[in-house]
Amino acid sequence: MDEINLMEISKLDKSFGGLSAVRDFNFRIDENELVGLIGPNGAGKTTVFNLITGVYKPDNGCVVFKGENLVGLAPYTICAKGVARTFQNIRLFNDLSVLDNVKIATHKNVPYGLMSAIFRTPGFFRGEDEIETEALRYLEIFNLENKKDELVKNLPYGEQRRIEIVRALATRPLLLILDEPAAGMNPQETQALMELIRYIRHEFNLTILLIEHDMSLVMGVCERLYVLDYGQIIAEGTPAEIRSNKRVIEAYLGEDVE
């Protein structure tokens, strides 16, 4: 099968007050791939995500998505181009219902105009129905439809993590970036989540980039891995290759192996 490049990152640099967080970061992901970005805590994984999604501006380098450089674009524009993400430290809209959280993410495709909303035209009601149907569809996939009216802040951690993914999915992304989606979950929950990730990738024809610092989790699900240490890529390859890579063992597993 011909692989089509979806995102290509080259020579990305970012430092904070003289401290280099990401250095000479090169990366590519093809359509429909499921790639993992791993590395010990503090290696700069989340910084990379923040650079891709426009939260931070890189000092150097470019992020080319579908042939277009994303550097310098506002986060909402990047989202509109088809890059959506979740957050390591859950950032849901706490005081709103589950359903509203998901509906907000569909806003960039809002099917009616502002005036239509103010004057309550038939188009508004039709549009609201469409939005609701779409949001419910995502919630059903994640088995959350019976929680739709609950306030997000009242839900347990594992469900909040899943809502984060639903919300990102509702922006209709091409590339879905998941920042430690299994953090704080037990092995069974993690297993279920990984299966769900495989499923949505297939169902929505997604490309997925996944951060995990627990290496064993990503080994099973990812096709290719990048290993980040001290802001630099130190290895790249299939899970099997990474597992036997000397540098990775030294830098990443060193502490455990010893």
């Binding site: 909402y76 989202c79 809209f93 509203d100 806003h107 960039k108 103010i118 004057f119 309550r120 549009g127």
Partner: peptide, 26 residues
């Protein structure tokens, strides 16, 4: 009417978490 529409939800999401809102395409 404004508040109870998709536009209103977008506005409220800013109050809830501006960065998350921006990253959800708003």
């Amino acid at each position: 009417n404004l508040v109870n529409s998709s536009y209103g939800r977008a506005i409220i999401s800013i109050r809830e978490d501006e960065i998350a809102s921006e990253l959800m395409g708003i």
